[in-house]
């Protein structure tokens, strides 16, 4: 490439064509770039442009079924949303989902990975057991949870046997959200475990040996060797986990909430579920798009924040 820019235009013309004809290397590049370009076009067409279009829709009074004009109404949709009690509730819930869900996932993911890292026997067996929930249908899992947690379910049978009173679980506005978060953590555990196992295996053994020679306790080794060197994995897990939690919270909420729409009393409603309801139950694409834009800005801010706070350089 450097040669080209140096040479004059005339020479470039003949030489380039010549090179394309004769040179396998350039044909190879042409092929590679063409292959790379196609997914980009596809991505632009079905992801980027519609995303940008959402910003446009959010500023309009846009009924999904309307065939006529969709008037521009400025920030009206955003104003309505900010005053909407259900939207605010769903935003707060989403925050609870993320904070508890992601930290729970990270915590249990690290614990399981550390334990699995220590054992030598049945490693494959345990990994499979922990990974199975991740590849099981979310809908199926949600319904199994609903059945074991119902008033006449097996968990309440156990509670009564040990002398406690039966709990409403998913039918209670105070308990439901935590149960759904628990189910989501349990399901995502396998994925986090794999990430952390890979991270742990990348930590050189000699660092631990050096620490031992220096007389470090197991806790010190964990805190000063394992955690700093796992940092890239933790950042990755936290970012992916947050985004996942925002997206995936849809299926679980729809299938586990008592009325199938984020109940009881909107206590399990997330922003994504609410966006879906605004768009496809109430046909208000304008409001739904405005909510989507707000969610987008929120995820963007959260990701930037996580990258800033969690990413630290450690040199050993």
């Amino acid at each position: 490439m450097k040669n080209h820019s140096a040479s004059s235009k005339k020479i470039q013309k003949t030489s380039l064509i010549g090179k394309f004809r004769g040179n396998v290397k350039y044909q190879k590049y042409l092929f590679v770039y063409t292959c790379l370009l196609l997914p980009i076009l596809f991505f632009l067409g079905i992801r980027i442009l519609p995303t940008l279009f959402t910003f446009n829709v959010g500023f309009r009074d846009w009924n999904l079924l309307a065939t006529g004009v969709k008037p521009f109404i400025g920030l009206e949709n955003y104003k309505v949303l900010i005053q909407d009690k259900v939207f605010i509730k769903s935003a707060l819930n989403t925050l609870i989902y993320i904070v508890l869900g992601v930290s729970g996932q990270l915590f249990f993911g690290i614990v399981v990975a550390l334990l699995l890292h220590k054992i030598n026997r049945f490693v494959g067996f345990f990994r499979v057991i922990y990974f199975i929930p991740y590849v099981t249908s979310i809908v199926a899992i949600s319904w199994v949870f609903q059945w074991i947690l119902m008033k006449n379910g097996i968990i309440n049978d156990l509670l009564i046997k040990i002398g406690l009173s039966p709990q409403p679980f998913l039918n209670s506005p105070d308990q439901a959200i935590y149960i759904i978060i628990g189910a989501m953590i349990w399901q995502a555990l396998g994925f986090q475990m794999v990430l952390f196992l890979a991270g742990l295996e990348n930590i050189p053994k000699m660092l631990y040996e050096a620490a031992e020679i220096d007389g470090a306790s197991p806790w010190q080794k964990f805190w000063h060797v394992t955690v700093p060197l796992l940092n890239p994995t933790i950042v990755f897990s936290a970012v992916i986990g947050s985004i996942n939690f925002i997206q995936v919270s849809f299926t679980q909420v729809i299938n586990m909430s008592s009325d199938g729409t984020g109940g009881p009393l909107n206590s399990t409603m997330t922003v994504v579920v609410y966006i879906y309801q605004l768009a496809f139950r109430k046909f208000d694409m304008g409001l739904a798009s405005a909510a989507t834009v707000m969610l987008f800005l929120f995820i963007l801010a959260l990701t930037l924040f996580q990258m800033k706070v969690l990413t630290k350089k450690f040199d050993y």
Partner: peptide, 20 residues
Amino acid sequence: VDETEERQLVIDAADKVLLQ
């Protein structure tokens, strides 16, 4: 005028009494 919403209002009214 809004089937989803009117249904939700009745569900919520019942929940308010029964759960809260």
